[in-house]
């Protein structure tokens, strides 16, 4: 069995972000971290491989060449993923749809049985790539997975949905997107970091993938800060809180 997982780097959501001069992207000294949901996807693939054996795991990262390569090595290969694929692209001019078409082209080359990626990239917050990819491939999908079990060539996946938890049974090949409660991602062991340096990491250009069209369908034309809230007040005690909520706020 072959599993394709994702390794996307994102700018640290806890860092202060500044908007670039043309107001179309962010700029400045941004710290990058591995997209949290990719860590869950990677962990899930590693656990499947440990449990069932005979599974090859491949991590795909799409982005600027050197930086993305470093993240694939440190975040995926060092944790135990077998090999990596880097597709060089400018992240500012990709949308989820172009990312999904790049994934589809890699699936075409690699023929994995399962694509296991994050439910959302915590920079763009689109929550689309897995679903787009599943439709491009004509495969079934289970998004927002909080539990995954393999039963032969079937997967049984529990999903976090509005109103509770839903369980689906899917036959392979399929696409699963990971939610945060799927597992606790491991840290890369020291030995893993050494090993990762020697693991294969293939670098591809967009032109190698023979996409019909490498244009995004969605582009950012303006970025702004959200409307802030004006500072509130600290109330003395419960009595005071009730008085404020009844009086000036009129919500009680």
């Amino acid at each position: 069995m072959k599993i394709l997982v994702s390794a996307k780097r994102v700018s640290d959501p806890n860092a202060k972000l500044s908007i670039s001069g043309d107001r179309r992207w962010i700029e400045g000294d941004v710290e990058y971290v591995m997209n949290y949901f990719c860590e869950n996807a990677i962990e899930c693939a590693l656990q499947l491989a440990e449990e069932h054996g005979d599974i090859e795991t491949i991590a795909l990262g799409i982005g600027e060449s050197d930086e993305t390569a470093r993240f694939i090595r440190q975040g995926a290969l060092a944790r135990g993923i077998d090999r990596g694929i880097l597709v060089v692209a400018d992240e500012q001019t990709t949308d989820s749809d172009l990312i999904a078409r790049i994934y589809a082209a890699v699936v075409e080359r690699e023929q994995p049985d399962l694509v296991l990626i994050g439910k959302q990239a915590v920079d763009g917050d689109s929550n689309q790539v897995g679903q787009l990819l599943a439709e491009y491939l004509g495969w079934p999908q289970a998004t927002f997975a909080s539990k995954l079990e393999r039963d032969g060539d079937q997967l049984v996946v529990t999903r976090e949905v509005d109103g509770g938890l839903e369980t689906l049974a899917l036959s392979l090949p399929c696409v699963v997107t990971a939610d945060l409660r799927l597992n606790e991602p491991r840290f890369a062991p020291l030995a893993g970091i050494m090993k990762a340096k020697k693991k294969p990491l293939e670098e591809l250009e967009l032109s190698d993938l023979e996409l019909d069209d490498a244009q995004p369908k969605v582009r950012i034309v303006h970025m702004s800060a959200p409307a802030g809230r004006k500072a509130g007040m600290i109330v003395k005690d419960v009595e005071d809180l009730i008085a404020k909520l009844r009086g000036e706020a009129r919500v009680l």
Binding site: D95, S96, D97, A100, D125, S126, N127, Q128, V129, G130, Q131, L132, A134, E135, Y136, Q141, T143, F144, R159, E160, V161, D162, P216, K217, V218
Partner: peptide, 20 residues
């Protein structure tokens, strides 16, 4: 959760871009 799950697949079928 249904909208998030279904709409991207609709977008592919309609060759449409999607804003979330």
């Amino acid at each position: 959760s249904i909208g998030k799950d279904v709409l991207p697949r609709v977008a592919v079928r309609l060759q449409a871009g999607m804003a979330s």
